[in-house]
């Protein structure tokens, strides 16, 4: 085995100390205010970045619990992403992995995922298409064009009702379907779906040639719904809301 050069060993000792100043030895010859500049900067940068990007997770935890999360993230997570827009993904990976503190409330994991998801939709480098569809077209009869900048996701809790001001509210377990998307004015939008509208939305995305009327008829059949026209009316209603909000852009033109 080749010997590690002395300068690399010095870098290693320094970095290891900064990751875990409570347990690792002081790097040789260093101490006091000057070393504290680096210890503080490394800890503070990560703390501030994660609190800014996960404000509801931060608010859901006590100061002690948050500090423990940040300390163990620094100590145990070898982050490699060099783009700050993707750094929230490192935090999410840490929280979902086996090194996260075991004492975190369960819904914090879902909350972290939701905040990460909002961030990635807001940052999506694609633009919302401005052409290639009829914004006033017949939503039931023509194939629909969906805004590509969206994420469909399900949680075991109504995670979207949590705000930084109401972090401690008791959260009932309830399967919750959400579409997070970005409209053409760059605004982040959110729509809650029920199981039926979720099924409709998924099939709209999959079946580009089929009209919503056909999909809704299929859904009514599979539900053995006594009045299929009720499903059709309800479906049209949600499609109009989706178009109004910018999730459905319009109908196929060509």
């Amino acid at each position: 085995m080749s010997k590690v050069p002395a300068f690399i060993q010095a870098q290693r000792n320094f970095a290891r100390y900064l990751r875990d100043p409570l347990r690792e030895p002081l790097p040789s010859g260093l101490s006091g205010e000057r070393l504290e500049v680096y210890r503080h900067a490394v800890r503070h940068n990560i703390d501030r970045f994660m609190a800014d990007n996960f404000p509801r997770v931060r608010a859901a935890l006590t100061c002690e619990a948050w500090d423990e999360v940040i300390n163990s993230y620094l100590r145990l997570h070898p982050a490699v992403t060099a783009a700050f827009s993707r750094l929230p993904g490192e935090f999410l990976a840490f929280l979902s992995g086996s090194h996260a503190p075991a004492t975190l409330p369960l819904h914090v994991h879902a909350l972290a995922h939701f905040e990460w998801l909002e961030n990635s939709v807001a940052c999506d480098e694609r633009g919302v298409p401005a052409h290639g569809f009829d914004a006033m077209g017949d939503l039931l009869e023509k194939p629909l064009i969906i805004n590509p900048i969206h994420q469909l996701v399900s949680y075991d809790y109504p995670i979207h009702v949590i705000t930084s001001d109401t972090p401690g509210m008791p959260l009932p377990a309830r399967e919750t379907h959400l579409v997070v998307f970005r409209d053409s004015a760059h605004q982040l939008q959110l729509l809650e779906l029920n199981p039926v509208t979720r099924a409709l939305f998924e099939r709209l995305g999959d079946a580009e040639e089929v009209s919503a009327r056909e999909i809704l008829a299929d859904i009514a059949t599979s539900l053995r719904h006594p009045a299929p026209e009720v499903v059709l009316r309800g479906g049209l209603d949600i499609l109009q809301r989706m178009r109004h909000r910018g999730l459905v852009l319009g109908t196929r033109t060509a």
Binding site: A6, F7, Q11, A15, V42, H77, A79
Partner: peptide, 20 residues
């Protein structure tokens, strides 16, 4: 340098040696 075994997101000082 910015870390070892992963990034620390801070500008860390180089050892001033010829090898470095």
């Amino acid at each position: 340098f910015c870390g070892e075994s992963g990034l620390l997101y801070e500008l860390l000082p180089m050892p001033f040696t010829e090898e470095a």
